[in-house]
Design a protein around this nucleic acid. Structure first.
Length: 470
RNA sequence: GGCGGCAUAGCCAAGUGGUAAGGCGAAGGUCUGCAAAACCUUUAUUCAGCGGUUCGAUCCCGCUUGCCGCCUCCA
């Protein structure tokens, strides 16, 4: 079955055809590690993880590269702002290097919490200064750069194809607009490849280069590192929708100027999470971190479920109400699967006739430009389908969860009973035998206070942990 | 100002040129000493508004209104 992906480059859904059969080269723009990630950032990584898992579900071996931007990302694309890392250092009193290490670790923890598969290659901008300088030299050799008093710039006017990703009209709008600080730039869309250290000042992060001491521009790391790990033309490049007009447009320009290729064949962009009143901007200093959700009692995978509930190419409205809905849905899903485990027993049996149809449905959904909301609907419908055996349903859930990443099976049961509660349970059993309902209810309340719900069924009492909001 | 996108039930959200997935919530019922859990049932004659194309549009086109994103730190 074909995989169809929406390619920003051509603004259409296209059948994915890898350069090398059976393999996919994937580059996903990583974080600038000057602060914690907010949940809006994380939505993009959930989308990219879904892509990665869908490719693998289709039998492709994925080489997945993610960069860590730990130098050169200025506050402003006007190329005159402060380096985010240096600013973060000033804010916290730590070194830029410490900042980078701490927030990189925090970011990787967030990915783990969200059950996002680690890329096959992590690469830091500061570990690849040599490669970046080499790439700039190639661009220089091909005649696309000029020097100003503060750096080496890319001359976008020399590249006729500049701006194909963003659309020519958009680029002309930028060039005509009065909102871009020109400085010494020749054209508004020109951007820095190498920035000089301030005169008379020293940066915490700076390196020698053929043009003078300084640091690489923000965009060049992606062109340089993707070429190193994936080749100068690879399959898929992803990022947030905000990167279309500037960051990715400039990456393409650099790679075209250096190597004559368009960098990647497919460009996929995740759309923003929308918060009502709350700002997602990190500059405000206030933004929602995954940590806060966990502190409020949510499972981080409830946030993943929430993200999968909307298509990656539409903006998704966040609210605590809808996050709670996702948490409940995830709990219900796991409870349902738990019952399935009991019903299925342990035995292996040949797959029944209903299974193949469900597999087709699921695959059709995820292969259609990652329609994860549809895939979730297929999962829910499967669980309700009595025509499929419990064993088939369970094995399909396991298979689907490899794509969804929601940890639906094999969770710690949470049903081991603490000794203190075992005694209460026994006392309640006797109270009930004597029809002492008041005492029975009191004991039930007491166990509830310990975080457990007792349920009375045909087989007697059953204790379970409280769910979200109970 | 330039460019792009979105508007579907109480909330979130898929989707299709032939009359609307799924989740959460809500309501009723079965079960229960009462609950809980589970199960069953119900919950958009309608897809922002107004025109147009069509045998037929929520889905195509135009306009209006509202919201959002990028261009100015964001994924």
């Amino acid at each position: 079955m074909d995989i169809k992906l929406y390619n920003t480059l051509n603004r259409t859904k296209e059948v994915f055809r890898p350069i090398r059969p059976g393999h996919a080269g994937l580059y996903t723009c990583g974080p600038t590690v000057y602060d914690y990630a907010h949940i809006g950032n994380l939505r993009t990584y959930v989308f990219e993880d879904a892509l990665r898992r869908v490719l693998e579900y289709n039998g492709l071996a994925v080489s997945h590269v993610m960069n860590i931007t730990d130098v050169g990302h200025l506050e402003s694309d006007a190329d005159d702002g402060e380096d985010k890392m240096e600013k973060g250092a000033r804010r916290t009193g730590k070194t830029a290097w410490q900042i980078a290490a701490e927030y990189t670790a925090a970011f990787q923890d967030d990915l783990k919490s969200l059950n996002i598969l680690a890329p096959t290659v992590w690469c830091k901008a500061t570990d690849h200064i040599k490669e970046q300088v080499e790439t700039i030299r190639l661009i220089e050799r091909n005649g696309y750069i000029y020097r100003t008093s503060d750096g080496i710039y890319f001359d976008t006017a020399k590249l006729p194809s500049y701006g194909a990703l963003a659309g020519r009209a958009n680029i002309e709008g930028i060039q005509a607009g009065s909102r871009v600080e020109m400085g010494e730039k020749r054209t508004a869309t020109d951007f820095a490849l190498w920035k000089f250290s301030p005169k008379g000042g020293q940066r915490q992060m700076e390196w020698d280069s053929p043009w003078g001491k300084g640091f690489p521009g923000w965009h060049i790391e992606c062109s340089a590192m993707s070429a190193k790990y994936l080749g100068t033309l690879f399959d898929i490049h992803c990022g947030g929708e905000d990167h279309i007009a500037v960051h990715h447009t400039n990456e393409i320009a650099q790679t075209e100027a250096a190597y004559g290729t368009r960098l990647a064949n497919y460009w996929l962009h995740g759309f923003f999470l929308q918060l009502g009143e709350e700002k997602m901007a990190k500059s405000s200093g206030e933004f929602l971190q995954l940590r806060l959700l966990v502190d409020k009692g949510y499972d981080p995978l409830a946030y993943r479920y929430f993200c999968l509930g909307g298509h990656y190419r539409t903006q998704l409205k966040f609210s605590w109400e809808s996050l709670t809905a996702a948490q409940k849905a995830l709990e219900n899903l796991r409870a349902e699967v738990g019952r399935l485990v009991l019903a299925a027993g342990g035995g292996e049996e040949p797959e029944g006739p209903a299974a193949a149809a469900w597999r087709e449905k699921f695959k059709a959904a995820v292969n259609d430009d990652l329609n994860m909301p549809q895939a979730l609907a297929v999962l829910w419908d499967l669980l309700k389908d009595d025509a499929a055996t419990a064993g088939d349903r369970l094995s399909l859930v396991r298979e689907f969860d490899a794509v969804l990443g929601l940890r639906l099976i094999d969770l710690p049961s949470g049903n081991e009973i603490p000794p203190a509660l075992a005694a209460l349970l026994e006392r309640r059993k006797q109270a009930r035998a004597g029809k002492q309902w008041a005492e029975s209810d009191r004991l039930r309340d007491e166990m509830a206070a310990h975080g457990y719900i007792v349920e009375d069924g045909p087989g007697g009492q059953r204790l379970r942990k409280k769910r979200f909001g109970e």
